[in-house]
Nucleic acid binder design. Structure first.
Lengths: 374, 374
DNA sequence: GTGAAAGCGCTAACAC
DNA sequence: GTGTTAGCGCTTTCAC
């Protein structure tokens, strides 16, 4: 019964022109307001347009004008709350300039990151074929600490053909235009906060050491610790994921250790939530017995109990700046290659002074922890 | 220094053809594998394509072929975790069929829903002008219990021109194709669960009564209560939002009531989280003193402490089915107009048997509640 | 197996 | 003010 598709045959400028007894040029002129047209004919044409609900074919227009008003966004996983936030910023700013977005999610069905990179490559091609005015990449290969030559090459090549902007990542030495949150400063902020609270035994968990953001965060952590004469212990620096699940795993690994930290700096909020859950399960109270600080300030960070202290990467602002910059690139104005956004410490409820340290108390705590750790 | 834009002048089939000493037709043939070409010339052409990194202009191709491989998705707010989930499903299925997505976020900067509808209209036009192969709408006007004639008309009109699919909403009487989660059954599932746990005093909070999803959920709630001989009290049915903030407000209103329920059915998970936070602040333990059930099963539902019992609307599946269906509409096959997805009860930790009811205990609880409620 | 040419729907010189 | 026409880059008959 239902034919699904559209039935109406499309109206073109020619149809309008014919019916109005003018040439297509005149129709085009009134559509685009690109030259004066006699009032009476203009009105006649307007009426026809309304009558037929004429909508100019943007494909044809773009083909001629060589601009599409489309921007492609390549990201790793729209399901990760981090990305919608930057998308929202991007959108808000770009929308006002008349752009629409291609959403290119490179999430791999099997969790294989190689697959993710081939998808990035595919989307890069597709976007260029579709003649987008610009591309923004976020996450994925541009976050690799040591991206391969091929992975780099593709992006560099693309950036020669279309304005391309990197968010929160980099291809070192390639001079790409990028806007990014200062990971290093963020990590320092977080670590400093814990130190000021009186913590000395601090762990860092989460992320992947092969990713530059993790490297940066760890670097900021270690540096700040040392600056305060504190030691960043090897066995208290764990990587292996950005997810809630990995957070739980980290905490459970922590519980098995002979000694435990009084505070944990988590590579992102998702990990922090996982840690919090595992801690809760083990009967460890946050923040009384264990302080937790996250990273990113995703919307959910303020929804947990206790609410998560974290470092805001100001994704929304990053997104807005990115859109602004990309627009400049598209309109061929000079742009500054590096736009750094300063992160912000958001103190909520998951951090507090460390518990008073009596040897017996500490030991009994460990005992309890071990018992609860299934 | 940086010119931002692309510098390379684009290569066309003509360039390739000239250099290969063939006609553009032949080039086109090897690109699309649309007719046999002598092996030697094919190889020559392939080499040239690789050498120049030639990428066919999809605009031109689409202009001729009248298909773009683009699908537009109009949604209210990408920042709401509900939507990325259905997007992911949509994407996974559509990607395999070669579609790419336009993301059209209609979020209004000032929270004005009239503005949101304007944006929906704009996007509807833009998408049609850009010649998308199909459009899916989710949220916004299609969730209105009583949408205006104009609001309806635009969508119906659009659906005559391009395959258009509604997710989790409807324009009653217009015979639109849609895929949706069964709100009614979901609400029944939730209510039934609470009743089976032994609850008799159950509240429903959240949503907007002018939205059909809320109407459905309340209907399912009331119906199930009555079916069990229980009363759905007027003062325990509150609407006014789908956000965490509104959830807090609901709980605080609840605390001010002379009598309180032992369980609350929240219109969605975000509201449930808000309720949980306010309850926690008031010193009410979930689920020991108050059972909470959410709706949607957003990713965060399993991250709260306690983890949220909820009803999964199976967004991901909804998204997948939607993509499947839209593809059928695009390829002109007959499609069933209504695809209903059955929701699923997800029992986690926020629901339990109601507290033993002794008059004194109940009263002292209320006293505490009032004290803590700032 | 290959080429010539028309045409997708629009815009913008360039004439008048 | 308005019309004619040449593209934009591609695909596809229809000849050969």
């Amino acid at each position: 019964m239902n034919e699904g598709g559209a039935a109406i045959k499309p109206v073109t400028v020619y149809d309008i022109a014919r019916e109005a007894n003018v040439s297509v040029a005149t129709v085009s002129r009134v559509i685009n307001n690109t030259a004066p047209v006699k009032k009476s004919t203009r009105e006649r044409i307007m009426e026809l347009i309304a009558k037929h609900q004429f909508q100019p074919n943007a494909l044809a227009r773009s083909l001629y004008k060589k601009e599409t008003g489309m921007i492609g966004v390549i990201l790793p996983d729209i399901t990760n709350p981090f990305f919608p936030e930057v998308l929202a910023g991007l959108d808000q700013e770009a929308r006002s300039k008349g752009y629409t977005f291609f959403l290119c999610d490179t999430v791999s069905t099997n969790g294989d990151s190689a697959e993710q990179y081939v998808r990035e490559s595919q989307y890069l091609s597709i976007l260029m074929e579709k003649q987008v005015d610009g591309i923004v990449m976020i996450g994925g290969r541009i976050n690799l600490a040591k991206p391969s030559k091929e992975l780099i090459g593709e992006v560099v090549e693309a950036s020669k053909r279309v304005p391309l902007l990197l968010i929160n990542g980099n291809l070192p030495g390639e001079g790409m235009t990028r806007v990014y949150a200062d990971e290093l400063e963020g990590a320092e902020l977080a670590t400093q906060h814990l130190i000021e609270l009186g913590h000395e035994r601090i762990a860092f968990v989460g992320g992947y050491k092969h990713m530059s953001n993790t490297v940066q965060r760890i670097k900021g952590f270690v540096r700040t610790m040392e600056r305060s004469g504190l030691q960043a212990r090897k066995e208290w620096i764990m990587d292996g994921g950005f997810s809630v699940e990995s957070g739980k795993a980290f905490m459970n690994r922590m519980l098995a250790l002979p000694e435990r930290p009084t505070a944990i700096f988590c590579a992102n909020d998702l990990v922090a939530i996982g840690v919090m859950k595992a801690a809760h399960k083990a009967g460890i109270r946050v923040p009384e017995e264990l302080s937790l600080i996250g990273f990113d300030d995703i919307p959910y960070a303020s929804n947990s109990i206790p609410e998560l202290t974290t470092v805001s990467l100001r994704c929304y602002d990053v997104g807005r700046h990115a859109a602004e910059l990309l627009h400049q690139m598209i309109t061929k104005s000079k742009v500054s290659k590096n736009t750094k956004i300063r992160p912000e410490l958001i103190v909520r409820e998951s951090t507090a002074r460390p518990p008073a340290r009596t040897e017996t108390a500490s030991e009994s705590t460990i005992e309890i922890m071990l018992k609860n750790n299934d």
